[in-house]
């Protein structure tokens, strides 16, 4: 009974907070001073037509690095939790048993429609992901979005061909290399330009072309690869448990 009263009390408090938020809401008619600064100086200072990208990658670049780190930690946590611990002596028997079980049809083959559609769509999905992160400074999207689209391509692959094998070693190498290069680009910004993750270490180029806005496309390629491969690794870990060291 006391528990019930407690729950109702908490609900009432939440309702009060949201009621206050809803009744005191008024739409901003003009930009704040910081927003005004971004809009005024952002495009000419950084050369990126997509202002969201300019803020996410450069002005608030450290936050993006934090987000990438959070994703990395969660992927590592999934890898740690879904690891199968087994004893050394019955290792071989178990492995043979597993193989037999797996080929005997723990995975049902996908239907004809799913397989054919995947064959058609998979290259386009991956290409679209790459397009999204390469054009992050020009059009909506960026490293995270492109990486997530590539990971949905992996999802297609795993749905259509449940037996397919994804090389853990390749994922680990590409992921660590791109994460490392991202930080290196950030540190180069400290040495050669105004601060950590400053994009003006490279030529700003012509406004609006593909290779412009300094290091933003480079940073987004690294972020996109890292996010895409990390999410693919998470999916692959969830798919099956027999995870070796890599």
């Amino acid at each position: 009974m006391i528990k019930r009263i407690f729950i109702f009390l908490i609900l009432a408090l939440m309702a009060m907070i949201f009621f206050n938020l809803a009744t005191n809401y008024s739409e901003n008619t003009e930009l704040s001073r910081l927003g005004h600064y971004y809009v005024e100086t952002g495009p000419e200072e950084l050369g990126a037509p997509n202002l969201v990208t300019a803020v996410v990658v450069t002005y608030r670049g450290l936050d993006t690095l934090g987000e990438v780190t959070v994703l990395f930690i969660s992927a590592a946590g999934v890898g740690l939790l879904l690891r199968r611990t087994r004893r050394k002596d019955d290792d071989e028997d178990l492995e043979q048993g597993d193989r037999a079980e797996e080929t005997a049809g723990t995975h049902k083959p996908a239907s004809e429609i799913v397989e054919t559609a995947t064959e058609l769509l998979l290259p386009m999905v991956i290409l679209f992901g790459i397009y999204v992160f390469l054009n992050g400074h020009l059009s909506p999207g960026g490293g995270f979005q492109g990486g997530a689209i590539i990971a949905s391509g992996t999802m297609f692959l795993l749905l259509a061909l449940p037996e397919s094998h994804i090389s853990r070693l390749m994922i680990a190498i590409i992921e660590s290399l791109s994460g490392f290069s991202y930080v290196i680009v950030g540190v180069l910004g400290v040495i050669m330009a105004g601060g950590f993750l400053d994009n003006r270490i490279m030529d700003l180029g012509t406004y609006g072309s593909l290779f412009s806005a300094g290091a933003i496309p480079l940073i987004y390629v690294f972020v996109g690869l890292k996010v895409g491969f990390e999410l693919s690794a998470v999916l692959d870990r969830f798919r099956k448990e027999d995870t070796g060291p890599l």
Binding site: V52, V132, P140, G141, G142, F144, Q145, A148, I149, A151, S152, M155, L231, V234, L235, F238, R239
Partner: peptide, 21 residues
């Protein structure tokens, strides 16, 4: 649109898949 892309691919695609697994 930036947020929409993330929500569509992660929120409705990958998360659903991971829950199913």
């Amino acid at each position: 649109p930036d947020v929409a892309m993330t929500e569509a691919s992660i929120g409705s695609g990958l998360t659903t898949m991971i829950f199913l697994y």
